[in-house]
Amino acid sequence: MTLTSDEILALPKVVLHDHLDGGLRPATLIELAAEIGHELPSTEPDELARIFAENANSGDLVRYLEAFAHTTAVMQTAVNLRRVAREAVLDLAADGVIYAELRYAPEQHVDGGLSLQEVVEAVQEGIEEGVSEALEAGFAIRAAAILDAMRHLDRSVEIAELALANRGRCCVAFDIAGPELGFPASNHREAFQLLREAHMPVTIHAGEADGAGSVGEALGLGSARRIGHGVRIHEDIEGFGGEELVLGPIAQHALDMQIPLEVCPTSNVQTAAAPSIEAHPMHELRNLGFAVTVNTDNRLVSGVSMSSEFAALVETGWDKEDLFEATLAAAWGAFLPYDEKADLAELVIEGYGLEL
């Protein structure tokens, strides 16, 4: 039976891949841009959201990325960072998300004079405010932050040290984001060694704009516990989509270790990592036993929510049990202590009303 919109909204959700600078409320972006005199494509919320979504669906990566110049422009003060983080948590909670990991690159928010540490603290304050306000509104959500280093720049060691200094309250993991093709994880070998020796969780954007080799480098040199997107790992599977398959070492490693793939269906189509949601490699990867999770990536820029991503998958044939399995995989893939992951998994099981 097809799930209704209300039924999808009511399902508990876990999002592991959601960029803070890609999920602002349109009205907030317009208000903050006006305060600093930053020009936007539109000052009407619905139209601005439509423009961003059209750019994201244009097939032009340059147009897709234009939105981030606007969002980061207004995220250069502690007050604004706090507000954006708070609203992100509230919006996710209202969408049925019970656990969220919000990621952002501190180095992109220092143009207004903030230090990296001040950026981290402002975002964390906003997250905590959002969790408290959501609870007052009747929504129970837990949220955490992942710190990104930009893979085409050279501050990864500094951001890794920042992540370690804020481990616990303000940071649960480290990531590298930004242009993948031409900027391999090996450029940040020193940062990954530092994190590995400190046993700091790492997730790495890989297998989106580059192929399976990028995923392999993330899993090997980067010791990634999760892969951001990862959909092109299928390029390491001979005969993918057919009856007779031969898994290469990268795919076999990810499957054997149940490395969560932070799949973002709509965004993957928009960036050409997948031809369509119907023909997305995630379906076959899931059927093969890979730990496929469902995520938003950039809610404003892509014009999505967790509920809309669920609905899009339901249109391709996913049912409640399929959504449950992906959400449970996300719960167990969360960067939480084991007992807290178990508690989160129990909430998912209870919320879906399904038996294992």
Rank of each mutant, 00 (worst) to 15 (best):
R82C: 07
H70M: 00
A88V: 03
N80G: 03
R86W: 02
L90R: 14
E87F: 12
A69K: 15
Q76D: 03
V74Y: 03
N80C: 03
A88E: 06
R86C: 08
A85C: 09
T77H: 01
D95T: 13
A85D: 04
F68W: 11
N80T: 05
Q76I: 03
L92Q: 11
T77S: 05
R86H: 06
D91K: 13
A67L: 13
V89Y: 11
A67G: 14
A73H: 07
T71M: 04
N80V: 01
L92H: 11
V84E: 00
L90P: 06
A69G: 15
A69N: 11
V79R: 11
L90Y: 04
A94F: 08
Y99F: 15
D91H: 14
L92S: 06
D91R: 14
A67Y: 07
T77M: 00
L92K: 09
R82Q: 07
A78D: 12
E87T: 12
N80H: 15
N80M: 04
A69W: 04
T77N: 00
Q76H: 00
V97Y: 08
V89S: 12
Y99N: 14
V84K: 02
A94R: 15
V79F: 03
A73C: 09
E87Q: 15
T72Y: 02
V84T: 07
L81N: 03
A73I: 04
H70G: 00
A85M: 11
F68N: 11
H70K: 01
Q76W: 01
H70Q: 05
V79P: 00
R86N: 10
A69Y: 08
M75A: 09
V97K: 13
V84A: 02
